[in-house]
Amino acid sequence: MTNKRLRSNRFLPEYVSMFKDRHGKERLRFRRKGYPSQYFTAPLGTEAFREEYHRFNSPEAASQAVEDAHSARLIPGSIGDLLRRYFAVPERLGPSDVTQTKVRQILERFAEGREGRPVKGVSFEHIDAIIAKARVKTVDAKGRKVGGHEAARKLRKELRRFFAFARKLGWIAINPVDDSQPVKVSPSERSTGFYTWTEDDIAAYRARWPLGTKQRLAMELMLWTDQRKVDAIHLGRQHVRQGKFAIRQTKTGKLLTLPIAPPLAAAIAAMPASNALCFIVTEWGKPFSVKGFGGWFREQCDAAGLDKCTAHGLRKATMRRMAELEMPNKTMKSVSGHTKDDEVARYTQAANQERLADSAIRQLVEWEKSNPLPRLDASAS
């Protein structure tokens, strides 16, 4: 009996064995270490059998087996269990892949070493201690700077949403983050973010990198589209529609139609002819990664003597320019793609206060001239 089974298995695909069940019916089974064990429903040699075999033997099946094994080890009602359920619907983390990845990293760092702890045992005191630790700036194993006031604020925000999900599941009656201490940042601690380019910075960069250079085109592309690096660096001729850019923002999913400013059009026209899909490519003719472009552009700024300037600072410079021209928030958001006014406010703090004040006083003087104040009649008193 054993020899017959072995002889029949010699003609089967790898990891497939044949046996008779308790009813005497021949069955085929897929068994491979690290993969789920599964039974075939289609007859041997058919197209349906081949499809089942490829599905059983796929990397996705192995990944699912690892996930299933991990889930089986999770303690019901634990932080690890809640994390798995929370991640099951990516939209809970944010509207785009970029945001989802960032939120996933925040929550995974929080859950590391706490996977087995019961959710119902987490108190506001625990949250306060975790947030306080997150406020301390340190360097992780990869040499990256982590922590700080902004990191603590983001962690508390995501933990509130995370434990609100546990409350919806009925695991807890009160969200412990609601009773925790809010992250307050004093004016001296508040970060101004990336340095905002000045008009002198822009002029100095243009003087160092003339039209016809990739460096100049990169700067004009960031400045005149006011988009994030992830969107600006992937723009190409295929995005031009009737003389305007059609841009689908990666972070927000918002579709923007932006006119191509003459300085940007001149920078594009001055470049050598190319069949590349992106205006900006590496020395090997490939599209830049976001991180790769950021590092490369910093080097070009350094070469121009602008050690504080970055690609993102150009996005802030465009916002500054619009703020100095006293454009309304709605107009500014139509270019940048921001949704909320408070998001715009972060980028307009670098607006030229002196110029705005001059404009305000000038308008007040003109108003007074056209509306003279009534003179007091001394004899009337």
Results as ranks from 00 to 15, higher is better:
283 E>A: 12
58 S>Y: 05
49 F>L: 04
123 S>W: 06
134 A>P: 05
166 A>Q: 12
9 N>A: 03
42 A>M: 05
105 Q>S: 10
217 L>F: 03
11 F>V: 10
269 A>F: 09
220 E>S: 02
236 G>M: 10
347 Y>W: 10
305 G>P: 03
227 Q>R: 09
72 A>P: 04
260 I>V: 07
325 L>D: 01
181 Q>C: 08
157 K>F: 13
219 M>Q: 08
211 L>H: 02
94 G>I: 01
132 A>C: 12
185 V>A: 00
312 H>I: 00
66 V>L: 14
38 Q>D: 07
378 A>L: 13
173 A>Y: 14
166 A>M: 12
27 R>A: 08
349 Q>H: 14
140 D>V: 08
381 S>M: 13
222 M>E: 11
362 R>Y: 04
344 V>I: 13
358 D>N: 08
51 E>C: 13
56 F>V: 06
369 K>E: 14
250 T>P: 06
34 G>V: 00
350 A>Q: 09
271 M>W: 07
310 T>M: 05
78 S>L: 04
358 D>P: 00
380 A>M: 12
250 T>Q: 04
368 E>M: 10
374 P>L: 11
356 L>A: 06
4 K>I: 07
303 A>H: 01
244 K>Y: 07
350 A>D: 09
47 E>M: 14
304 A>M: 07
125 E>D: 09
364 L>T: 05
92 R>C: 00
189 E>L: 01
190 R>S: 04
171 W>K: 06
201 D>Y: 02
160 R>S: 12
196 T>N: 07
257 T>K: 05
31 R>I: 07
337 G>Y: 03
41 T>E: 07
146 V>M: 04
365 V>L: 12
346 R>W: 13
248 R>D: 15
51 E>N: 13
150 E>A: 13
297 F>A: 04
19 F>K: 08
345 A>K: 15
213 T>L: 04
369 K>F: 12
134 A>Q: 05
68 D>G: 03
66 V>N: 13
61 A>I: 03
67 E>D: 15
47 E>I: 15
61 A>T: 03
68 D>R: 14
92 R>H: 05
90 P>T: 01
358 D>E: 13
81 D>P: 00
50 R>P: 11
212 G>C: 01
122 V>M: 09
356 L>I: 05
359 S>T: 14
229 K>A: 14
256 L>V: 03
341 D>N: 12
11 F>Y: 09
80 G>N: 06
239 H>S: 15
243 G>R: 00
239 H>W: 10
235 L>T: 15
105 Q>W: 03
152 A>K: 08
253 G>R: 01
340 K>W: 09
133 K>S: 15
33 K>P: 09
4 K>A: 04
76 P>M: 06
87 F>R: 12
137 K>C: 13
200 D>Q: 01
374 P>R: 06
224 W>N: 09
98 V>P: 07
217 L>I: 00
3 N>K: 11
170 G>C: 11
247 I>W: 04
257 T>R: 04
364 L>A: 07
